[in-house]
Amino acid sequence: MTAIRPGSPPGPALATGGFRHHDVLDLDDFALDEIELVFHTADGMKDVLGRDIKKAPALRGKSVVTLFYEASTRTRMSFELAGKALSADVLNLTASASSVTKGESLVDTVKTIEAMGVDVIVIRHSSSGAPYLAARVVEPAVINAGDGWHAHPTQALLDMYTIRERFGSLDGLKIAIVGDILHSRVARSNVWGLAKVGAAVTLCGPPTLLPSQWGGVTDTNGHQDGLPPPRITFDLEDALDGADVVMALRLQQERQEGGLLPSLGEYIARYQITPERLGWAKPGALLMHPGPVNEGVELSSDVVRGVQSVIDRQVASGLAVRMALLYLIAGGPQ
């Protein structure tokens, strides 16, 4: 039914409760219908990106600042292009984490950005939780573009969107996430997001690169304090057996220096995804990686460019998903 209300222009009513977030900090508090709304909106954005004129005026007059305390080319570019495709003004601010030693710098910086009338602050920071601090002290919407080991919600959404693109639905899919789980914000956000959409997650890596505790207890107020407990295995064949999706994580080179791994060689020998090992997963299983790939470490070069690899699709999805989030979030809470 199309109800045309006086003074309010017509438009299709939303089937869901709408997008209820003022900020996008992590997926732990996202409801399933919100995730689906992001995906649905991203479908529309993909449309825009498929045209000759890859630009729509939806965010004309809105401004987006990307505030990156850590180097990142692809995530920043993705946000910048996403903002521009919706006609927002996008400003990039790089803060060198080494020059920022006192805590108030982040607070001061975001307050300054707020004073300039910016609508959305996209923040990447090496401290887990830094975007929460920013969101607490300023009014503009804050999008977490990766904080420490904690969360990378837009990456998880684009990963899920990529999987959905191929399978139609995520419900019941088996997803194996392989590698350095302990230090991975991508893994944490995916564990939350995939749990919400009904996928079954298996985490796999050497014990030193896995958190020692998951799940946790529910406190007296009914809050569960930990991550949704996934299946954990140290055995790659066990993890990949019957998997619909294999997601490899980037291995930071400094992990072996920290005594977490004897050598890169031992990691490669046990955990590198090769064409043969990818065969342990279901035929046609997707191979994913958040990038940038250390070719020859997490993945062998031939699987990176193999037919099962959707790594480039992830990048394309990222643009659509980030456009969707900017569109849904700009202009304040709903």
Partner: peptide
């Protein structure tokens, strides 16, 4: 929906379709 002139005045972001 991406071409509306009232995006920031509406309580709900209009749903984006294909």
């Amino acid at each position: 929906s991406l071409y509306r002139d009232d995006l920031s005045r509406r309580p709900l972001r209009p749903e984006v379709g294909a």
